[in-house]
Amino acid sequence: MTEPILSLRGVSKSFGSIKALSNVSLDLEPGKVVALVGDNGAGKSTLVKVMSGVHRPDSGQYLFEGREVHVSNPAEVADMGVQTVYQDLALCDNLDAVQNLFLGRELTGPWYTGFRVTRAASERRAKEVLRRLRLDSISLTRNVGAMSGGQRQNIAIARSILWEPKVVLLDEPTAALSHSAAEQVGDLVRELASHGLAVLVISHDIHHFVLDNTDRIEVLRLGRNAASFNSGDVTGEQVVNAMVGGNEAVNMAG
């Protein structure tokens, strides 16, 4: 068992009188893909926002590389090596893949060029990264607005790993995608793990995405850890039962 790179221990978070997370623990290991599943309102997004530094937990520990850290904003977490890709992707449709990958962090030339963007160097770097992720089929010079949903999702993910983080958090990467586009994203997620990254994926798509592309499944229910499965020895039905609360579901069915 590899040591986890990012761990949450007994994390709780409330918004006013609503308890979003109570005593939740989670480990992410290098080279492993963990799925975070749960019904609407189970606390998945809150948990990701705690990990990405958007929310501070009320109690509990945030451990990174074995040491406890106190993170207060998303930039700090990103600098630490934890990147988050949100559902809306935050891409600019009127820019091409290279410009989107480097947005806000452009490589520029010397002052007498007026800090001209060094397009050739950026494009070469982008090409290397996309090749490493086996995303060679993505055009570097088309506007991303003209691309398919799967390609856009993959560009957003590629952007998150351009600066070599250790952990990537993906919020519903397949929600708006067709089956084949989701498969492309699944390929990429496994590729990331094979490069030694720890990956967390929120997904509703248990049968077509989670079982095929993840190593472990963590189930949240009503803000608590409900179950944990190895993706290899579980059926979709078992996962769904854990999500909705197996006994109640059986009772209602009976």
């Binding site: 809306d88 935050a90 449709d93 009127n94 947005l103 800090f115 001209r116």
Partner: peptide
């Protein structure tokens, strides 16, 4: 023309015009 098409500032103009929220999150 040089400023808009070649510099970082120029790229930001286009980025903001298309998706200001994305630009903001990219640190612009």
């Amino acid at each position: 023309s040089y400023i808009t098409s070649e510099t970082r500032f120029g790229t930001y103009l286009y980025a903001i015009g298309n998706n200001a929220e994305a630009a903001r999150r990219a640190g612009i």
